[in-house]
Design a binder for these strands. Sequence first.
DNA 1: TCCCATTAGAAACACTGTTTCTATATGAAT
DNA 2: ATTCATATAGAAACAGTGTTTCTAATGGGA
Lengths: 213, 213
Amino acid sequence: MNKASDKPSIDSRTVTTYPEAKLQHAEMLKLNIIEAAATIMQEQGPEAVTIRRVAEKMECSTKIIYNLFGSKDGLARQLYLEGCKLLAAAFEEVPAQADLKQYLRELAEAYWQFSKSHTSYYMLMFGGAFGDFKPGADSLQATITALQQLITIISQAIEQGLISEKDPLLVVNLVWSSLHGTIHLYLGGHIPNEATAKALYDHSVALLIHSFF
Amino acid sequence: MNKASDKPSIDSRTVTTYPEAKLQHAEMLKLNIIEAAATIMQEQGPEAVTIRRVAEKMECSTKIIYNLFGSKDGLARQLYLEGCKLLAAAFEEVPAQADLKQYLRELAEAYWQFSKSHTSYYMLMFGGAFGDFKPGADSLQATITALQQLITIISQAIEQGLISEKDPLLVVNLVWSSLHGTIHLYLGGHIPNEATAKALYDHSVALLIHSFF
DNA sequence: TCCCATTAGAAACACTGTTTCTATATGAAT
DNA sequence: ATTCATATAGAAACAGTGTTTCTAATGGGA
């Protein structure tokens, strides 16, 4: 866009010391590795993400990945955060509405669509697809951030006296666990087909809305 | 119990041909292997169940396990069925009640207790703990058998006109997915502690009962 | 008694996550 | 500018996995 900024200009504000440059290079490298891992995961599923395959795609040795992420779990942690961003983005695309019932319905629909279009991310984050990876405090924080719209809408409903329960987080978890339960049973192969699962999901949403509002 | 049957007696009805004996031996061996795998799983978690460890516990080579079960998934399938029996037994211990609301509450409590006391089985069956293992048609059949009490009670409630929805299986799935969602989010580390999870679970149960009845 | 077919065991194969060892290359110091 | 020390990346090794192959023995049928 701005041609003047295409070439680095001598500007004290943008001066980058060598150690900084090295760190930036490391950060850039980390991002590339995460992207490579994400690509493999989305194309071939979470179980296809192996350190060797990521290293091969990056044309580097596995050691670099261990130096930058510590372990496979470290890489999974970054993918989890990446997934939270995608989920947050999906929720942000839902236009806010004065009708909280309809707004909640559409947020639930966005959550379903996310699980469909980013199934690998969903399974990584909420399905335990990475074997022994469990979210740490940072991941949980990112999750709450991703679910912000849900928290906001329910807090509003409580403020407006539409919901009698006073703890927003409890209600959010109530909604979340119900939606997750259906999606996870379906992805786990316990619901025969997608049509049945979606009908079940919509019923769950209707039930939640009917119960609370 | 019956001492006469302790020693094999010459009785045409109980005659066992050699090939039959061999097959019975194979069946017995299968049961022993499943039991060994179950022990390892319950003591050290689902991820500790490896073919080599099971073979070591049985003091045999891994080949036998492959001959009898075909693959690790084949062993997982048997463990799944075993888990279904345990879950069915847990439900059967709940005394039937005329008060369907209370009965459902206690069945839900039994389901929670099952997930607590047989966490490894729960994760194997519904948590996807065995990596790529997914339930086949037989496993799904065993699951609905295990959930029979739930199906019965909801069918009764529909017959009595307590629930407006006419499809029992849909309602059962609605209940099941909600309960599973809470349990699975907790076991996956998304609910901070058991107390919070249990409170959430009880709220879910209350919500379901309030919605349907 | 001899033969054949089943079957179990050991070892091998192709993977996995992770670590170690070594050569190189880079930053600092003289 | 040259030398030294440290950091780092690559190859290979290690310990483990699910699974297969090869081989030897065992045991039933002719």
